[in-house]
Design a binder for these strands. Structure first.
Lengths: 201, 201, 201, 201
DNA sequence: GTTTAAACGAGACGGTACGTCAAGTCTTTAT
DNA sequence: ATAAAGACTTGACGTACCGTCTCGTTTAAAC
């Protein structure tokens, strides 16, 4: 949400508070349209407002533009960060990759894609997007660092590159699906194992 | 290009032939707008027509819609497939990854991203996009298969998954750039080596 | 004012009494906006509320809608009905025409104009408007009738038509100003004299 | 109409010419909405476009904003300037007043009223409005001047004031109708005669 | 050399969505 | 109970593109 939740002492704002119902209805409408429409282009602010039974102004009061709304919708798709209680770094990695490509991986990929061009230009938008992505990347880095410490991973591992090697294939599979020739079945496990094992003979 | 170059006897069409100059001017205009505008959303058919000094109908005579035009523009960004004369499969892989992320990798990523939602719906568009992507993927598979045969790569290598592990990180780096924490410097070599070496200790 | 100041026993209302300051501030804000903005369209309820330092609801508690508020503002512009102590009906007419086109004739014309379309539809609004206009028209009729009685005006004078011939030009001058080619200087006197004298040779 | 009908040699504009059908449909729609809606506020660009079966852009291509469109609609309401073949200036005046308050006098008054606030601010709009009004005023002045020359009117007649005294009451009657107490029946004749005759005994 | 058919630049067409603004209503907290 | 603040739905505003459709003008092959 973009609402100005002031950090500090939370002084109660005057006037009628924003309807939490509306918040929910709007995001629900976005997800519903995304699911039925197949195309992020089909998710127009007007149709979201109509589907949510809400005025356009109610949307623009909360988000500065369409892209910001989509970013928040994306956050809703992502599952919560999984706990790390795994017995090994390998298992933790598999769990995290699995969580990242939750039930809505396809929609997530599509919307993210649509957002990308705007992210380049609007720094504020970019910041919002990073706020969704970065915690997951950081979690992945933690796992990798711990794996290095415990000796499970090689000592000279390039952490950032490895994060890219775990999230890049996952995203691409989400975007192109079957065209890649890779089945979704057991993908996280296979990916992590291939990465660990290496390709050389 | 989508032009109806009939396979058969190539009967010369009557009337004025299409201007090759226009073809070029249009694609040039797309690339120029992409470069200056930073955003695929800023590339409108109207602005392309204006920049190319061409009527809108001249564009729609060649491409069925905006997306098809963007796909052709994407093809222009990609360099030609590199020769495979490398002394090792490793070097060939590096060369191919390098070629794929040509001078315009950023723009390529952005445009591809914008196209994705439409690719899901329009099979014809999807076909056009595959025509650009598939040869490169196939080339990569060839290299991998040869590496397996020569014993450079392990015998049980999952070819499709490995293609994804080479192209996914590359695309993600193109899309998110510095936010990934990975420098563009020597990226292809580092990626291939990390993949070969594996992450386990 | 439309406020429900019950005629009868003036029972002291419970709760917080209405602020008389607010009444005044609101009408002042309307007049101020009218003066600075040049346009009745620029006088929005929102800007009135902001300028008056008042909530919108405070306005709507007093007037049923924007038009009603404007009508009340119009009343404020009009000067009070002048006394009729003139030595002749001619002088009384001049005094009345002068009073009608007070210092704010221009604003008055504009606002009246904006109100007109709504007056047709809303009978209540129309009644309110008549309550402002009718006393002045009636006063004019009185003068005319007295002039007929005293022999100052011709016996067959059409009272209603003459009222129209005195107020119509005045209103039009207020609306179109210099475009009419008639100077504001001494207008009431000239109008009344031209009306008395007649145009035929 | 706002179209750039260049005065001189009428160089043919490139591109598809504007549809005369659309011109007509749009103005017809405005008049129809005005007639049925009773209120100029009910004439929105969107409803005009819908009623005319036309895109909004087609309207905005011809008129810069809503007000300019209404002004052109006003012109359509006014009948053509009548010929002046009358045997006397009095008859010519009656004919002209009659023509000015054509079949749509009520709508004309309402729309003009709605336009007034904007006329003050936008000089271009004002120019367009004058282009509709001025020819009629000038025609009236011609009649008055001729009447003075022929001795039908008094030599010291104030032409501009007299124009105001003929058009002002007419406009006011159009705006307020029955509330003025003056019947529409034979109004032009009665007005002109009252003006000629004068009010003094 | 005509004819002729298609391509050309230009720009109007009916639409859809954008992001803004105001009207009039409703809901909160403070007085 | 009223006040100020501000959220709410509704709907018009004017703009920008989309993809299609005339216009009148080239251009090159076919006659």
């Amino acid at each position: 949400m973009t609402s100005t939740t002031s950090a500090g002492q939370e002084r109660k704002a005057p006037g009628r508070p924003r309807s939490a119902q509306a918040d929910e209805a709007i995001l629900d409408a976005v997800l519903a349209l995304m699911a039925e429409g197949q195309s992020a282009a089909a998710v127009s602010i007007e149709s979201v407002a109509a589907k949510a039974g809400v005025g356009k102004a109610t949307i623009y009061r909360r988000w500065p533009n369409k892209e910001a709304l989509l970013i928040d919708a994306v956050r809703c798709m992502k599952g919560p960060l999984p706990a790390l209680g795994g017995v090994s770094a390998r298992e933790d990695l598999i769990a995290l990759v699995t969580a990242n490509r939750s039930n809505r991986a396809r929609e997530y990929g599509i919307v993210t894609a649509c957002l990308l061009p705007e992210l380049q230009r609007d720094p504020e938008l970019n910041r919002m997007h990073q706020a969704v992505m970065e915690p997951r990347r950081e979690r992945m880095r933690e796992i990798l660092r711990r794996g290095v410490e415990t000796g499970e991973f090689r000592a000279d591992l390039d952490i950032h590159l490895t994060v890219l090697m775990l999230s890049g294939p996952s995203m691409m599979l989400g975007m192109f699906g079957d065209a890649t020739g890779v089945p979704e079945q057991d993908f996280p496990e296979k990916l992590v194992d291939a990465l660990l094992r290496g390709a050389s003979a």
